[in-house]
Write a protein that binds this DNA or RNA. Structure first.
Lengths: 194, 194, 194, 194
DNA sequence: TATGAATGAGTATTCATTCAT
DNA sequence: TATGAATGAATACTCATTCAT
């Protein structure tokens, strides 16, 4: 157990460093060297804890998705329609507060939005975690309509779209009004399924 | 005319090469060297036609936005509601067919979705081109509601969100059903504003 | 004559541009491109007026040495000792006022003080111009001692040394007191040859 | 000890290579790549030992100044006047034997004699080392006159001027007679302060 | 578990120069 | 006389990764 603990400590030290760097410099600046330096390690040392730079990203994303699940799960309470609305807004708020996690989640890394996957092995695991995190929203949707996947997808897409456009400052109004637009869109979706 | 043509030829040769590389390797792989090699040029030769690598990106994006404007303008015909719907779907279809242009448009370059802008000087010009391209959708929306900016933003965000999630394969269903979801969402938006 | 005039005009335009760039950015920044741009020419156009970048430098230096000769000649008046002193000080003042010309004169270009010569062909010509410019000082020295070359060399070296050290800020005091040191050194030299 | 030795070995290998390249090709040719190649290293490997190309230059200069101090200190013995004379001649001899060190010392890099310093942080350190190296000459001067700074500056400037002019072959006679001129100048300075 | 040392491939950009037109 | 187009070689520096110790 002490060994396992020590191992965990090393991992956490690295992940904390990575989080800090991400917040400060984005995915771009989060080079392995930078993370190692911040963690007080040599670059080579990171390879005892992670297989590659991508594995660090993946671990970070995994942790982020766990937190997302907690947030969404806590919010999606009450009747189905209200739970759906609150869960989707929690999703929005989560990523609004941590834009780097969204970038990580989409792996908006060097190369754009579809950078040949996150590495074949880790993808399924992460995808499962994502589906898990969104499950409460889907479950709520299933309570009042028969195509919950569609509703979930639309809400998710709206959140991601609004946040990406807000982050990239593609339209002025987005920065301010994004949350209001998200709410209005959810209301429209709900109204359309009486 | 022959002079202008020759100059234009060089630019087009480079832009075509850049387009090809983008499609093959994404923004990530579209290094200046790679573009030059594909165009059959020396890296240095590109600097005769463009001031920097970013200027090539900008030219590519500019051209893309012009085409988008044409597509959207052509589609947004008929009564306001129908024009809105058709224009937004044209926007969706445009980027569905050319995902790299979306990456370019968001400049999802190294560093995630908000990489400190495209360089201060060219940003405004490109943003204007984007607003221009979306104008027909906004105009149509203004024909049947009093917050056309909101409607435009929601439709734009939905398209971007769906496409980004489809491209990144974040949810299985997206790839197939994205367009249907886009349509349904537009219908919900329209229904909510009778 | 009109042809010759036009040719001369082109040369002067380039040399003026080069002088400006030198003053602003030093030898380092005086690339052929920069000079051409400042002159309103294409880089390639300069090759109709000069054989190479070095040839431009050489022409600049040639002109500078002509001006130096004028200054020194005008100053080296009166009795031999006084003429020597005044001539040497004129030399000092000349380069103190135009440090870039000193850099050019020594060709303190990339590579230090002895960068394999200024190009074999132009060297002799420039050297003759230098000897010419310094001739009044030597002549004056010949009026009161029998080793005028030594005196000239020592005075020249002292001026160059003081100015180089002042320019490079190697010793604090140099910047202020350099001229006083030059005078005192000349006086010591004169005293030593009564 | 073995660790320190190995690390030192790498640094020395690089510095030796740099010295060789300097001697062969001057500061100009001493590119990072060239140094690395000569040392049998990859360019990237140099960054393990030094922070930048300038840091290599600085280390070289630092070492040179230490040797200069030793030479000058050893020579500046005996009564004040004799110590001054011998110290100044040691200075001259030192740089006469290693002209590249003089170039380095003046950092006669790209851009002429005053290329905006060696980088703000290392400058003071190197300047201190220079002052240190010259201290024995100054101390000796203080033993027989009340403006030792002036005397030091004049002697230093004369050495630098003679050597620069000799290296650049600006005057034929310099190459041969430079040391004699240096001696005569020192004698004149001493005579003028009885 | 961690380091020191090193690699090889890569980055964008600048340079003086050439040559057909 | 001048340009537009292009070259080839060079620049310092960064990257993720490997491996012996």
């Amino acid at each position: 157990m002490s060994i396992s603990t020590k191992r965990e400590q090393g991992r956490e030290r690295i992940l904390d460093a990575a989080r800090t760097i991400f917040a400060e410099a984005g995915l771009e600046g989060a080079s392995l060297r930078a993370i190692a330096a911040r963690a007080g390690y040599t670059p080579a040392a990171l390879y005892f804890h992670f297989d590659s730079r991508e594995a660090i990203y993946a671990a970070l994303l995994q942790a982020s998705l766990l937190e997302l699940r907690a947030d969404v799960g806590a919010a999606a309470q009450g009747g189905p329609r209200q739970a759906f609305r609150a869960g989707a807004l929690a999703l929005f708020d989560f990523y609004a507060a941590r834009p780097q996690d969204l970038a990580l989640g989409l792996y908006l890394g060097p190369g754009g939005p579809a950078p040949r996957g996150l590495g074949a092995e880790i993808d399924p695991e992460l995808n499962a975690a994502l589906i898990d995190a969104l499950a409460p929203i889907r479950t709520a949707a299933a309570g009042f309509c028969d195509d919950p996947d569609a509703l979930l997808a639309q809400a998710f897409a709206q959140a991601v779209g609004l946040l990406v456009l807000a982050e990239t400052r593609r339209l002025r109004l987005f920065s301010q009004a994004a949350r209001g637009l998200m709410e209005a869109m959810l209301d429209a979706l709900l109204e359309a399924r009486p």
